[in-house]
Amino acid sequence: MNASATSALERRPSLRYRRRYLTNLLGWTFYGVFFAVLAFALLDIIAVVLKHGIPAISLELFTKPTNGVSGGLLNAIIGTFLLTFGSLLLAAPVGILGGIYVAEYTASPFARAARYLSDVLVGVPSIVFGLFGYLAMVTWLGWHFSLLAGCITLALMIIPYILRTTELAFRGVVSELREAAYALGASHAKVTLKVILRACRGRVLTGVLLAMAISMGETAPLIYTVNWSNYVWGGHLTHEPVGYLTYVVWSFINEPFDSAHALAYAAALLVTVFVLVITTSTRLLLSRLDTHKPH
């Protein structure tokens, strides 16, 4: 490859010079423009959400539930947190333990299959999970629209994310640490949880945080599993629909009232801010981990 570059460059340097210079300049400009397009898209999305969302922010938003298509978003804010943390509560232990298995038993065909299938599962569209949740939990098990149906649906979606980040985190821990711990006679569980997990908990946490951001921003899997409620969650895991922020964005923008549009933009603002803050802090955590522990 570099051979062709070399010969091309050496043949007629003086004539080529201008063309090369121009090509280089043009190339870098193009690449810069591509980057600028992406950065602009993000900033414009944030700007639109801020522009329409900020005027809609009020104290009432955080203290009152939705009253028809006006009022506040207390019910949706609480619902979004319940769904997010509920799904994490279900997914994190399974994902972390599964990730430990896949990392520690790398040679086993079952672990390899589990890892590969996690990657495949990550690619399954969220609406497919939503349909599954509707058919399996809402109607077949008769749970009706409910927090539990939503949490399980989201959990199934995010387990593979947590599993794979945990696996990568575990594989990042140097073998010497592991061997030293075993040499001291520690049990398998103790070595894994007290020594290795502690050593890489930052990275495991980033996986959980990313999964949290995914849960928080999802809509499609929830429309037919959790539905919507104007009320703050009443404590029932089944047979009670729950409000959540992304529903407000999707549905209230379709109502003929200005108050509904204001709520939709306010909800979009809250979700976007939550998700971007989580993602940014994850990135910061990761880069801190990278600088502290280069491998």
Binding site: L141, W143, L148, G234, G235, H236, L237, T238
Partner: peptide, 13 residues
Amino acid sequence: LAAALVVAGSATA
């Protein structure tokens, strides 16, 4: 449902 009701039971309004 059992698991669900353990938590839900406490909050019946």
